[in-house]
């Protein structure tokens, strides 16, 4: 199978590989996929105010899955949480020229962003009981 140049670039030089401290209250962690399906993505964000100031990922999966999650971290860094939530998997498909059999990789990357943001939001509610109760 021929990979697009952009997939190869992200695979060979993945952006933002690594982990953030998942115990930190400003960090949201999303883990999606399953080993039996051949794809697991972990995507983390660090939020300051409503802006994503840092993003990291680790992915078990094919080259397209690695590229999709690498691209996702690149895109959400510097965006507000709401802007990040509006990223659609089809934009990832387009940017990386993913073939039909690899569309699920982009879906997983979108899910990973949403899952990380949900985790972050849940933490804010738990960590600010006064706010939550008012």
């Amino acid at each position: 199978m021929a990979y697009s140049d952009k997939v190869l670039d992200h695979y060979n030089n993945p952006r933002n590989v690594g982990s953030l401290d998942k115990g930190k209250e400003t960090v949201g962690t999303g883990v999606v996929g399953a080993p039996e399906c051949g794809d697991v993505m972990k995507l983390q964000i660090e939020v300051d105010g409503d802006r994503i100031v840092d993003a990291k990922f680790k992915t078990f999966g094919c080259g397209s899955a690695i590229a999709s999650s690498s691209l996702a971290t690149e895109w959400i860094k510097g965006k507000t949480v709401d802007e990040a939530l509006s990223i659609n998997n089809t934009e990832i498909v387009e940017e990386l020229s993913l073939p039909p059999v690899k569309i699920h990789c982009s879906v997983l990357a979108e899910d990973a962003i949403k899952s990380a943001i949900n985790d972050y939001k849940a933490k804010q509610q738990v960590d600010s009981p006064e706010e939550a109760s008012t």
């Binding site: 993945p14 590989v17 982990s19 883990v31 080993p35 697991v40 993505m41 972990k42 680790k58 992915t59 078990f60 690695i66």
Partner: peptide, 8 residues
Amino acid sequence: RELSPLYE
């Protein structure tokens, strides 16, 4: 494996 959340 450095990229793998499972290995981590």
